[in-house]
Write a protein that binds this DNA or RNA. Structure first.
Lengths: 235, 235
DNA sequence: TCAAGCATACTGATATAGCAGATTTTCGGT
DNA sequence: ACCGAAAATCTGCTATATCAGTATGCTTGA
């Protein structure tokens, strides 16, 4: 294991590493994680790992039961729907601000970024992570264009949760408009804040449908397995 | 110290106690807190206290520097403004949902609550905490009327941060319309979701002005004292 | 064959001890 | 009196060990 990641504290290091694993799907939804195993793997005590896991749990990426176990959170349909209600509120606010105060260079970069995202939107497999990463960057740039740090932070946290869900493959790819993000970017850059808000609202509501389709198979898991935090390997 | 507070874990207990103290203003803005002192006071090890403090820091109620100290967060003007941008996004979303889906009993309770809040709005001193508590409840009820748990959670977290700021006394009470909350509640209960959204937007923007006036004296603190985490008592 | 009970191995939670860095205080020199 | 360096004290951070609750599997009895 590489020791090259230098951070202020061990718990911060563990946090970054584990978060990355979850977001990249290396730890899939429902995967059980053990504090001790991760501690020996990262070459540190259980304590920094515990702090990192607690933080990830507070952010909604993990769930745990006292003295039973910790696993990558399995979302409920209501949670996903609710998550996108919050997301809509935040992203619409960001879109309005962007349309009002973003600089010319920020607008130019957004449109270029949108073109790249649309170009990658149909890719699957390895290129999908590139797409997800760029898509995330697109929304971050919109938030940054509003020049409001707390809003950026709120959107970032919100987005991270959804990233977990987008790693699961989609059952059947419904055909989407090939210029979704370019159209959105163009409106944010050239139209009024009111128009921008409505465009973003529709964009988010569309994303909700997409995500629901992706997670369909996970929504019943909670019922079937009464053994919630299985320690033995399921196969 | 009372041991009557029964919770799942010690760290949860410490979290609840400390959060309450901060929210009630017993730990004023800028107050330095020591893990060890709190640990002995609460009769537990430093570890649960550390976890509680870490959580409170992630929620924005505390701030710390590694190996230097932890204190109740001193807000920046930009942070306050940004906070209310987020708050506006969330509360407006909640207002729209409330106007659309709240039940008749929820609407009735909201209007009654609003009347009580307005009646207490001019009180100071001890009654102020009652007002703050009811005001918080009012906004929570609005969020609950939308029947969307994640949105409720987001608003709750957002509101908690602002509670810290509202504990500080206001320099000079500018006269406010005496029926602010009753008018807002009436609109949420009887008008369209669009009208409700706009009413809430104005309500939040007004709250921002109020808060900025309250915190004016804190905004320069960061510059003056270079010794940020003073351990000796300042007087 | 199956179900209940019990032992074992795991989980997270907590206490204690000691470390490293930051702050404060003390003390010596000018 | 003033200033700077060293010592003392405080801070948060981490490792180790132990405790208590949970899941699992094996044993035992019907």
């Amino acid at each position: 294991m590489k020791e090259t990641l230098a951070t202020a504290s061990l718990s911060a290091e563990a946090y970054i590493i584990l978060r990355e694993r979850i977001l990249r799907g290396e730890l899939p939804i429902g995967q059980v994680v053990s504090r001790r195993k991760i501690a020996v793997e990262l070459g540190m005590s259980m304590l920094p790992v515990s702090e990192a896991l607690q933080r990830l749990e507070l952010e909604g990426l993990l769930e745990s039961r006292p003295r039973a176990g910790t696993r990558v959170k399995i979302p409920t349909e209501d949670e996903v729907r609710g998550h996108y209600v919050v997301r809509e509120a935040l992203e619409v606010q960001a879109a309005k601000l962007f349309a009002e105060v973003a600089s010319a260079s920020e607008r130019a970069e957004l449109q270029k970024l949108a073109a790249r995202v649309d170009a990658l939107s149909t890719k699957t497999g390895k290129d999908r992570f590139l797409y997800l990463s760029l898509h995330e960057k697109l929304h971050r740039r919109i938030a940054e264009g509003g020049h409001c740090q707390p809003l950026c932070d709120a959107i970032e946290k919100n987005q991270v949760l959804a990233s977990t869900w987008l790693c699961v493959p989609r059952p059947k790819t419904t055909d989407e408009p090939p210029r979704r993000h370019q159209d959105l970017a163009a409106i944010l850059c050239n139209e009024s804040s009111k128009t921008a808000a409505e465009a973003m609202r529709k964009h988010v509501q569309n994303a909700l449908k997409n995500t629901l389709a992706r997670l369909e198979s996970y929504f019943q898991i909670r019922e079937t397995g009464k053994s919630v935090f299985a320690r033995s390997v399921k196969h």
